[in-house]
Design a protein around this nucleic acid. Sequence first.
DNA 1: GCATATTTAACAAACGTTTGCTATGATGAA
DNA 2: TTCATCATAGCAAACGTTTGTTAAATATGC
Lengths: 334, 334
Amino acid sequence: MSPISITIKDVARELGVSYSSISRALNGKEGVSKETRDKILEMAEKMGYQPNDLARGLVNKISKTVGVIVPDINNPFFGEIVAGITDASSENEYNIFLCVSGWSVKREKEYFNTLIQKRVDGIILKSVGDYNDYENIKSPLMIIERYDRNQKFDSVEVDNEFGGYLATKHLLECGYRKLGFISGREDDSACKRRLRGAQKALEEYGLTLNKDLVIEGSFSIEGGRVAAKQLFEKGQPIDAIFGMNDLIALGALQYCDETGISIPDEVGVVGFDNISYAGLPQIRLTTVHQPKYELGKMLFATLLEEIHNKEEKKPTKKIILNPELKIRKTTRAK
Amino acid sequence: MSPISITIKDVARELGVSYSSISRALNGKEGVSKETRDKILEMAEKMGYQPNDLARGLVNKISKTVGVIVPDINNPFFGEIVAGITDASSENEYNIFLCVSGWSVKREKEYFNTLIQKRVDGIILKSVGDYNDYENIKSPLMIIERYDRNQKFDSVEVDNEFGGYLATKHLLECGYRKLGFISGREDDSACKRRLRGAQKALEEYGLTLNKDLVIEGSFSIEGGRVAAKQLFEKGQPIDAIFGMNDLIALGALQYCDETGISIPDEVGVVGFDNISYAGLPQIRLTTVHQPKYELGKMLFATLLEEIHNKEEKKPTKKIILNPELKIRKTTRAK
DNA sequence: GCATATTTAACAAACGTTTGCTATGATGAA
DNA sequence: TTCATCATAGCAAACGTTTGTTAAATATGC
């Protein structure tokens, strides 16, 4: 009757050698002669020995595991970030726990807790709540799109304010003047900063951001569609929409399609993120590009640094990448 | 100097009680009086005690963790399946390790190994290689789109052959006769079965599947685009394309757009999966719907059953859901 | 050939839990 | 009062590793 799972001790018994030697041989540490090392390696291989990472983690206090919490894995923005993270992590022999909060603060907190219990080495988080809730966390934490006033955590993100500025300025340059804005969540920090950028652009044109024309929707196609409906039904004239992400912009486009509003003549639309579908010939959404995959890679790389230098308290890092305007066919030529 | 992480022993010391009592209290087991139980719970809470799941897993031999290996997280087909899996797992207090093989057999194998080492309770796998490689695995294994001749593993999937049949029959009913097929990978079992269904439909129309008109591409938009190019440049007349997934079909559409081929008059296109973008008003791709999210939920639920009944060897389960044809505007009316 | 340095390997403690067993004290029956 | 019963709580082993320390064996220097 073979054991469920064969351990270091089984190999040791088979070879009549102590298990400390097995451990050292397997980990390439010194203190074993080449001869016994080879013998051990061979036998371990032959017996199909697989180290138990739970036990390893317990003694090493390193689980080679990180947690990733995102609100929505089906939004390609997060999908691509996660792709970057998994690639970077597997290059470093790390595994990731994927947690999808579904925009629920409660679930996010629960996930955070179980990750702590799983003793992950670090966490990469896009919070839907308040980052300050995580203030006294001891494990390394990377923030996607941070905005904690205290700047307690490392973060990697695109310059959202500048992105919002680019998008809005473009609409204005195209001659649109009655801009509506569709945000994702009331207190999403990235949205806030994109709006701040928008305001800047408007001011350059002697305009001002009308709070009435900023609709709170949700970060999804359907959310964009209903928000667009609300926007148009307010009665105020609208000739352009800045959707805070591509999904929202896609939803707005859908609404215009349904109601026969012609794009880009009657109304111009610009999104944010540049998800892959935005570039399809049938869509060709004008949008602000974010280097999502690279963002993911950097998030992991920076987290890993943090993990390695856990001891020395270095100043928090805030890495900012540049967004880029992609002009396509949902805005008219200047 | 507070300890890095506070343990059961710290709580015990604080309370002057043995740690077995702590454990029993925390786990709601009997053998502790209500009085001490309350005292313990309160103190654990106050000290911010977080159980160590590594230690727990070590003794319980259950890690409350499952591994998921998919080829590509940015294909919404897998994205939605994973969403279903994560939702189901979090309902059951499980965490998932997300592994993205990038269609590489080597990476898939490596991931599989590390998952074993992490002592996951089970694995959900879409293999890009041969399932028989996993023949003598002891841990519960769920297969996405299985085709192991020996039927050794449980699986949940859509009836691919029927789906292929539906798509092809639809093209024929619309009057298209010169069908080209774009497959994802040479030996992808789902593709094979979709083609078998296609063959059946062709035969009903007295036609036969011409191997020359089956192109091996890759499961991506770009893959679909170049495969479509190849298909048309073969010189044989083509008036319809069945892309083995929506990404491929989208790529074919893109090629047609670039070369001025009009859809659906000159050429009809049908895809497979019904990813959310296929339904956008600008796209409206005719395709075969798969209930992806539900697939994910069932995959996890079935795996969990397996985990719980690990002992008794039950016959392998093969759950098959029905696909559904979504007729939209990339095929002309009958 | 002897003392010493060095390599190799074994022992045992530790990591943070769970749990079977035992000891203690209280309770109840006779 | 005495004995059996029972609820409560403590002890210690176990899970599968890593690693500091010690012991044995071999090699080195004179």
